[in-house]
Amino acid sequence: MDRIAVLIPCYNESQTITKVVTDFRKTLPEAVIYVYDNNSTDGTDELARKAGAVVRYEYQQGKGNVVRRMFQEVEADCYIMVDGDDTYPAVHAREMADKVLQRNADMVVGDRLSSTYFTENKRRFHNSGNTFVRKSINWLFHNSIKDIMTGYRAFSYRFVKTFPVLSHGFEIETEMSIHAVDKNLAVENVIIDYQDRPEGSESKLNTVSDGMKVLRTIARLFRCYQPQKFFGAIAALLLIISLLFFVPILCTYFADGLVPRFPTLVVCGFTALAAVQCFFAGMQLQNIVQKNKQDFEMQLQRAMKEQREAHEETH
């Protein structure tokens, strides 16, 4: 088991990978640097190997798929995950690792948004998009994570070995953030400097399509992690719609003793019934979520036991 493992997912980062590996080897000389190549065609893997990294491969395209592979294969007390595009300085890695190893943090977030991100980033709509995602998740999940979509993070062993990776692409960071908040894991923020990609290095992000994926991920996770609120909101909306159409019919009945729009009355009844079904569906699913949280606590205990056994074997 490694003490510290630096995990670098890469896809066509030949312009920057050598510098990234070299910088992290200087900052964390005791760490093992893993570069996971995701079908690069520009020689990223060979450059990383020459720079001193352990190179492995993931052939399913997408950052989420790479993260799944990394988390399954690498054993360490502390994991530092960073992009291979040289936008995150290695100088912050020691502080982030110390928070995991000494303060028992489960996830340490490299906070770009509180420092230089808004001045360094030149990509259109990314600034407003990051702000919107952060505020949305903070409002929906009541958390204090400062940067939801940063690619610079540190993790504990028990986070990595109990995190279910469901996303395939760049929405993986959003999934990590929400998972940590929902499972009451220890999360800390470290303000980091951010520098835009050097000239000649191209971003793999598509602002529109990847932004929509992130929004769909937020909606999906809100439904899965907080079903009572999700289905309760739908139930309230259906009930309001039903009442808006039912009240005029009721007033007419009291005034004239007639029901002139009988089909509307029937639709109102079915809409109200759908509201009741949504409400109770949310309550039932919330009970399942609570049971899943109890099971997750047992998974954490098993992960800690595995970590202790791995240390005993090592020594």
Results as ranks from 00 to 15, higher is better:
F125D: 14
S128N: 05
R197S: 05
A186G: 02
Q72G: 10
V35S: 04
I148H: 03
L140A: 11
Y57R: 08
Q72A: 14
K291T: 09
E30V: 08
D147A: 07
R68F: 10
R302C: 10
Q286F: 03
L239W: 02
E58Y: 02
N38S: 07
M212V: 07
Y88W: 03
C268Y: 01
Q277S: 10
A186Q: 13
F118N: 11
Y57F: 15
P248E: 14
F24W: 06
T41I: 14
Y194L: 04
D77R: 12
E173G: 01
V208P: 00
R223Y: 11
S203Q: 05
L250W: 06
A236P: 00
E173H: 11
N12G: 08
N104Q: 15
P164Q: 06
S136Q: 15
D256M: 09
D147N: 07
V74N: 07
T44G: 09
K204R: 12
V259N: 10
N127L: 00
L47Y: 04
C224W: 12
A97V: 06
P263V: 03
F118T: 03
D85R: 03
F141P: 02
V6G: 01
A219E: 11
R158M: 05
N121E: 15
T252P: 00
R197E: 14
V21I: 10
V267C: 06
L273T: 11
D37W: 01
I17P: 04
G232Q: 09
I137H: 01
T18Y: 05
V160K: 05
Q290I: 13
F230I: 07
L244G: 07
D2F: 05
R68S: 08
V66R: 00
S128D: 11
R49L: 10
S128E: 15
Q226K: 15
L300T: 09
I288D: 11
I4T: 09
L113I: 14
A48S: 10
D196T: 09
L237Y: 07
E73K: 12
G211I: 04
M70Q: 10
Y88I: 02
V35A: 05
A275H: 02
E306V: 10
K183D: 03
M176S: 04
F132S: 08
E120P: 02
I218M: 03
A281M: 13
A235N: 06
K63L: 13
I172Y: 14
M96P: 04
R134T: 15
V108A: 04
R158Q: 13
M107W: 02
M107K: 06
E95M: 06
T150P: 07
E313F: 05
L205M: 10
E297P: 00
F170V: 14
L7E: 03
K305A: 15
V247L: 15
F155A: 12
R49F: 08
V267S: 06
Y57L: 04
I178R: 06
H315M: 09
V91R: 12
L205P: 01
I172G: 03
T217F: 02
V6C: 01
R220P: 00
F231V: 06
C268W: 01
H315E: 10
V108N: 00
L244C: 13
A303T: 11
G62L: 07
T16E: 03
Q294I: 13
R223P: 05
M176H: 12
T271Y: 00
K293E: 10
Q60H: 08
V32Y: 00
S201H: 12
V108L: 06
T44P: 06
